[in-house]
């Protein structure tokens, strides 16, 4: 089977010509620097939504590529801890805390490509840092397209679950607001509270839309917006981690997923109850 070229190009996202190591930029050989490089890549991978076993595997492979003799890595959803021992007996232990993780699949792809490059031929620490910076700054699509994505997803699901075209449009309009809210960077509130607020707002807006004649079925519009709120696949991923042996990470993810779902349910329930009282069971 022959696949078209654009599908099989291995380096996703950022491509950067591999410059030969400049003067003074040598491939590191001491345990500390090696572990530092590996953990930088590993932490970015975890932040971009990589699986636990992928993170552990990547850190191990990078350390070995730089000549480590033994590597012990342990990762959970918010922390990576690793120890590396060199053939000369020197060793280093480092931890990396990873505060938030979200799905950034293009970054995941670029990081994977970077890890492959390093494993093929080790490059200098400065070079790795430069490439990581490129990956961090890389935007696969313009910002406005993300809003369009959120609108398409929500509107599509409102119709998918049996709504009319008008319901889809209403859901898409609400999605624009929700995506805007989710991307408010300066607003540093806990993600649970964020879920609660945004699902309450989504519930209120859905009912208002129908009351104002924009949209026909409240339930379909709400279902569309729920799909946007629910953390994508967290439950499935949690069980996958659990059953693949990453018990601690799996448990953390499972509890996080359950709590988040409860918060979302609470937000919508508050909105529905409010309108049930006001309108009298009309919703």
């Amino acid at each position: 089977m022959k696949f078209p070229h654009f599908l099989t190009t291995p380096t996703g996202g950022v491509t950067r010509a591999s410059a030969p190591a400049a003067e003074g930029q040598t491939v590191p050989t001491d345990a500390g620097s090696i572990l530092s490089i590996a953990l930088d890549v590993g932490a970015e991978l975890l932040r971009a939504g990589g699986e636990i076993h992928r993170v552990e595997d990547t850190v191990t492979r990078i350390c070995r590529a730089y000549g480590a003799e033994a590597v012990e890595v342990f990762a959970i959803t918010s922390l990576i801890t690793a120890e590396v021992r060199m053939p000369d007996g020197s060793f280093a232990t480092r931890n990396r805390r990873v505060p938030t993780a979200y799905n950034h699949l293009a970054r995941l792809e670029s990081l994977n490509a970077l890890s492959r490059t390093i494993c093929k031929s080790p490059i200098s620490a400065a070079e790795v840092e430069a490439r990581l910076e490129d990956i961090r700054l890389y935007r696969p699509v313009p910002e406005w397209l993300c809003y369009l994505g959120g609108m398409l997803a929500t509107g599509g699901f409102a119709v998918f679950f049996g709504g009319s075209i008008l319901d889809g449009l209403a859901a898409a309009a609400i999605a624009l607001f929700l995506t805007l809210f989710a991307r408010l960077r300066p607003l540093r509130i806990n993600s649970m509270v964020k879920s609660l607020i945004s699902s309450f707002a989504a519930g209120v807006l859905s009912v208002l839309c129908v009351e104002l004649g924009f949209g026909e079925h409240v339930d379909k519009i709400i279902i569309g917006t729920i799909m946007l709120e629910i953390p994508g696949l967290s439950f499935g991923n949690a069980l996958r981690d659990l059953l693949c042996g990453d018990t601690l990470a799996g448990t953390m993810r499972l509890i996080q997923a359950i709590l988040q779902t409860l918060m979302i349910a609470l937000g919508y329930m508050a909105a529905l109850t409010l309108f049930n009282r006001l309108i009298g069971g009309g919703v």
């Binding site: 599908l7 996703g12 950034h104 699949l105 699509v141 959120g150 398409l152 119709v159």
Partner: peptide, 24 residues
């Protein structure tokens, strides 16, 4: 058929939202 079409639209939307590389 409507479900298949809307599933395609929604999946595309979510892929953009999750920053899937345009090539994928």
């Amino acid at each position: 058929i409507i479900m298949l079409i809307t599933a395609a639209i929604s999946t595309l939307g979510f892929s953009i939202l999750f920053y899937v590389h345009p090539r994928r």
